[in-house]
């Protein structure tokens, strides 16, 4: 039918919902919703640090006590992350191919800086998430974290976090990552409504403003923790913090 048509066919047996342009974008949007909801929950939990060591360690112990449920959440999140990234990469690959020759005069034309930086911000956040898991969940950089317990015999998460963030490099990377995460969400949140067909001329400014506000709330919320540690507002009462990088 067409001479210039590329030979790209939708993958044999599966529904075009998983291979078409729009179907894959829906998956990216839907997994994005799950990840944003996780971020909100994660932030609310993390803010328990401002209630003191007892509150945070109790919260951490509660999470650990729901081991089975925790695994369900982990598997769902991992699946969402993989799908979100995989489909973005395949879409991006096609987008690159669709514009073989660039314009001599570049014009941004209505696009926002957040939209243009989605890949950079997303990949940096991915690198950060892996580091973040290695640091606090697997505790591979500082195995001694595993031995820290508080007076009630619970894992001393509070001391671990304060100790880690007292290093300016650790806090610095964290701040950059949550900053880029905020930028990613500044485009992503409003964008997902458009992709799911839930936006129009009247709603779009509201959704864009709302997305920006939620992105800022998440950024300020997450950034407040290392910032407070660096400023000495949150500190450990027993034992000197030892910086994992500087020591």
């Amino acid at each position: 039918m067409s001479g210039s048509a590329s030979s790209k066919k939708s993958c044999c047996s599966c529904s075009p919902l998983f291979s078409s342009s729009i179907g894959r974008k829906w998956i990216v949007a839907l997994t994005g919703i799950v990840l944003v909801l996780f971020l909100i929950g994660h932030l609310l939990g993390n803010l328990s640090i401002f209630l003191g060591p007892d509150a945070m360690n109790a919260y951490a112990a509660f999470l650990k006590s729901t081991e089975e449920l925790l695994w369900v959440v982990r598997i769902v999140l991992l699946t969402c992350v993989v799908l979100h990234i995989w489909f973005t990469i395949t879409l991006w690959h096609e987008n690159k191919r669709a514009r073989p020759q660039k314009y001599a005069v570049k014009n941004e034309l209505g696009t926002t800086v957040y939209a243009r930086l989605m890949r950079i911000s997303g990949l940096t956040v991915l690198a950060f998430v892996l580091y973040h898991l290695a640091q606090f969940t697997w505790q591979s950089f500082n195995p001694e974290y595993k031995t820290w317990v508080d007076a009630q015999g619970r894992h001393d998460v509070y001391r671990m976090v304060v100790t880690a963030f007292s290093c300016p490099f650790v806090s610095g990377f964290y701040l950059i990552a949550v900053g880029l995460l905020g930028m990613h969400l500044s485009h992503g949140i409003a964008s997902l409504f458009q992709t799911l067909g839930l936006s129009n001329q009247k709603l779009r400014p509201v959704l864009e403003r709302g997305g920006l506000i939620l992105a800022w709330i998440l950024f300020v919320g997450f950034a407040s923790i290392p910032a407070s540690v660096l400023l000495g507002l949150v500190k450990v009462t027993s034992g000197l913090p030892s910086c994992p990088v500087c020591h």
Binding site: S2, S6, P16, S21, L91, N95, R97, A98
Partner: peptide, 15 residues
């Protein structure tokens, strides 16, 4: 949409 893809147009990134 299928023809659009076959013709080699890219995907919308909501720019």
């Amino acid at each position: 949409v299928r023809t659009m893809q076959e013709e080699g147009f890219g995907n919308c990134s909501n720019y």
